[in-house]
Nucleic acid binder design. Structure first.
Length: 734
RNA sequence: GCCGCUGUAGCUCAGUGGUAGAGCGCACCCUUGGUAAGGGUGAGGUCGUGGGUUCAACUCCCAUCAGCGGCUCCA
């Protein structure tokens, strides 16, 4: 006798078990027709799910007319589409393609599969696969769920010879895997007896035993036609369980939408997003260059990109000056001992360039017949004296015994700096400090080098050499909250100036169950509270992330969303209780005794490279005037007005405006096209009419024609004001 | 790092086991034209790099470098 409560509070009672579909039908034929699945007590179920007890029930429909597809419905459709795609691929490529794992994703779905030797699954087959998918969808076969006892199900899968599905089933049953060999231990939760399902569920696309079927938890849409439109989009490789020592599978990506119009819209959006790709725009507008002879992941800033970067640096430097920062410069390399003290080497050596070793020392070792392996040992070793000092100061075994080598065996050397803080710590330590001078804020656009894996490199956003807009604030514990606040206000100014509204903040806090952190619980509490309060005061979305703090202190990360919807981690603010100890830094307090400073690391842009890359995509290359490599293009109508055009250029140049002249013998249409392609903010079209009245015809980027003539002087004054104010929008109007 | 795809003129890309193609850009000439490409002529390439197969390789094979797309937790 189930009594079913609907989302609006209505109750419906039945004197026998009913399916979710029956309930929908009892409400209305239209709803029954539109329903895709049901939510029973908050859990998604097939429409055919039998309800035999009291529950809350919500029916999932694709959408209300004129509204976007409900995300839950879309997920269902895509999960079902993954089945259809798998069937289509087995039809096209062969039944011996083994299916592994096929979930929906944020923008579609994928299915990992094993393609046997000799068979080929390539993008040449996409048309065939798409056609087959469309046919299956048109057949409107029902998704049919059936459950079998665990043993029976496992035997069935074993008979089919699909170890991947066997593994899936065993996991679902909470059994240790009999087929997947991994070095990783089975997660406790999946092995817990309480989690065991008594049976396994299968879905056939049509009649069980006759049509295609798959081990699957479900739920699915009622029948294939309810999927809408589905296509296969791309291929990639993936490992079974993401384990590179395991089988290599082919990951086939696809997507599905309720209607062709929505799919078309998605494809168009993807195309638009691809056009904003900073690598494409960066090449077209000659903003930067990567040369394979120089090296992967190393950015050459060409003149245009250098202007953008220089303007950004000037902007931030001006803000820093207002906030009482002082500028420093440090070299690109530092002695190995420096990084042994800071802890960067050898513990993070995998993400750093190899040390630079002095030639003479190397030659001596080589002459003595020293092997390569031994040479490395001599470079990476730490002297007893250094190790003792560090271990004593950090009150821990920071330098392990196996790293310690006799002094006469060690080779001196340098490292490309992976971070700026050791150099800055040395600057702070180079002079005595009183509490009255605190905080000491050292800022530098410091270039650092890190050895990113080659496959992770990407344009300007993931590189091996980059310049941080770095600073280290050496402060007293009491000053920490105020300094954090200052850092955030800086970030806020930057984002506001650039019109980047879609960002959020992550506050990394310590894991309450771990004791890996340095610094007292009390100072942690204060610093965490300060970070949270500061984040709150920003007025944007923020999340607390326990366990995400660095071992030396809590941190605040800024995550910006770009037009493609990708999130980029840009700036960061980190509190550090450890650095003072490692470098034995101190200041003299009011009590006339030395105290450890707390250090705040912060880089609001993150790096100039990544930030510019994100900015290129953000503006699609159409920078605000103050950032544009060329701010104005002067275009004479014909060579007859070239002289006047020169005069206009001279006037703008005298006002410090970056101006270009297109005095070629092209017609004005061609000049406009070229300037528009180069995304120049202002085109000044000058012909005899303008020359006569000492004016310019102004065409603003993004508009269809010029907005009329204005006196040259007025234009110069207006654009000067716009640049000085670092306006995000183009504002000069005649 | 691993897997797949790609690498031809400054850029975007065709192409074939037998002396290399287009469009754009560039240079020059004609045109002097008022808002998204006026016309002509011409220069420009060791076909990513190194090996191999072949009478002959940009093309086929191997290696290498680089770019692009992917790459962990439970159907």
């Amino acid at each position: 006798m189930p009594t079913i409560t609907l989302p609006n509070g209505d109750k419906k009672s039945f004197d026998h078990p009913v399916s979710a579909y029956d309930v929908a039908a009892s409400i209305g034929a239209g709803l029954a027709k539109a329903a895709l699945a049901a939510k029973v007590d908050g859990e998604l179920k097939d429409l055919s799910f039998t309800i035999d007890r009291d529950c809350n029930l919500a029916l999932i429909t694709a959408s209300k007319p004129g509204q976007p597809t409900n995300p839950e419905a879309l997920t269902l459709m895509r999960h079902s589409a993954a089945h259809v795609m798998a069937e289509a691929i087995q039809d096209v490529v062969g039944k011996d393609v083994l299916l592994a794992y096929g979930p929906p994703t944020e923008t579609g779905f994928f299915y990992d599969m094993y393609v046997p030797e000799g068979k080929k699954l390539s993008s040449d087959l996409f048309d065939q696969i798409n056609a087959r998918m469309a046919a299956i969808i048109k057949e409107d076969r029902k998704f049919c769920r059936y459950e079998v006892a665990a043993v029976e199900g496992l035997n069935k899968l074993r008979a089919e010879g699909n170890k991947y599905k066997m593994d899936n089933a065993e996991r679902a049953l909470g059994m240790p895997s009999s087929v997947y060999k991994s070095s990783k231990p089975v997660a406790a939760s999946s092995a817990a007896p309480g989690n065991q399902a008594a049976s396994l569920s299968f879905y056939s696309t049509g009649t069980p035993g006759q049509n295609w079927e798959d081990l699957c938890r479900g739920p699915h849409v009622p029948s294939t036609s309810r999927i809408g439109v589905a296509i296969v989009t791309s291929l990639a490789s993936a490992y079974w369980h993401g384990d590179e020592n395991s089988d290599r599978l082919i990951r086939v990506y696809g997507t599905a939408f309720a209607s062709q119009a929505e799919l078309d819209n998605y494809l168009k959006q993807k195309e638009e997003a691809a056009k904003r790709d900073h690598r494409v725009i960066g090449k077209a507008l000659r903003l930067f260059h990567i040369d394979e002879t120089v090296g992967q992941g190393l950015i050459l800033w060409t003149p245009n990109g250098s202007i953008v970067r220089r303007e950004l640096q000037n902007f931030i430097a001006a803000e820093l000056k207002k906030q009482g920062y002082t500028e420093v410069f440090t070299p690109h390399i530092g002695g190995l001992d420096l990084y042994k003290t800071s802890g960067h080497f050898p513990y993070y050596k995998d993400s750093q360039f190899a040390p630079i070793v002095e030639r003479e020392a190397l030659e001596k070792l080589s002459a003595a017949g020293c092997s390569c392996a031994e040479m490395i040992n001599r470079v990476e070793g730490v002297s007893q004296r250094l190790a003792d000092g560090i271990n004593q100061r950090t009150k821990a075994t920071t330098i392990a015994a196996d790293r310690i080598k006799p002094d006469d065996q060690l080779i001196p050397g340098f490292m490309l700096k992976p971070m700026n803080c050791p150099h800055h710590a040395k600057i702070f330590g180079s002079a005595p400090h009183s509490y009255r001078d605190m905080p000491v804020r050292l800022a530098e656009f410091g270039t650092v080098y890190r050895w990113e894996q080659s496959g992770e490199l990407n344009g300007m956003t993931r590189v091996r050499g980059f310049t941080q807009d770095d600073a280290h604030l050496f402060c007293t514990e009491e000053q920490v909250p105020g300094e954090i606040q200052g850092c955030l206000s800086l970030v806020k100014i930057i984002f506001a100036t650039l019109g980047m509204k879609d960002y959020r903040v992550r506050v990394g806090l310590r894991d309450p169950d771990s004791n890996k952190y340095t610094g007292s619980a009390e100072s942690w509490d204060k610093a965490e509270a300060a970070c949270i309060a500061a984040a709150q005061s920003l007025g944007v979305a923020f999340s607390k992330e326990p366990g995400e703090a660095a071992f030396y202190g809590p941190k605040i990360d800024f995550v910006v969303k770009d037009v493609i919807g990708r999130e980029w981690q840009l700036g960061t603010v980190q509190v550090d209780y450890q650095m003072g100890n490692r470098f034995d830094l101190s200041y003299i307090g009011a009590d006339n005794t030395p105290h450890r400073p707390v250090v705040i690391h912060r880089a609001p842009f993150g790096s100039m490279e990544r930030f510019c890359g994100v900015l290129i995509e953000h503006f699609a290359g159409a920078f605000p005037t103050w950032l544009s490599p060329q701010q104005v293009r002067v275009m004479p109508i014909s060579e007859k007005t070239n002289d006047y055009a020169e005069k206009v250029v001279a006037a703008l140049r005298a006002a410090d405006v970056r101006v270009g002249l297109d005095a070629g013998n092209d017609r004005i249409q061609a000049k406009v096209k070229v300037a528009a392609d180069e995304k120049i903010p202002y085109m000044l079209i000058v012909g005899p009419r303008d020359a006569e009245s000492n004016s310019v015809s102004v065409r603003v980027r993004g508009t269809e024609k010029d907005l009329g003539a204005m006196p040259l002087d007025a234009f110069v004054a207006a654009i000067k004001a716009e640049i000085a104010a670092r306006k995000a929008e183009l504002g000069v109007k005649p």
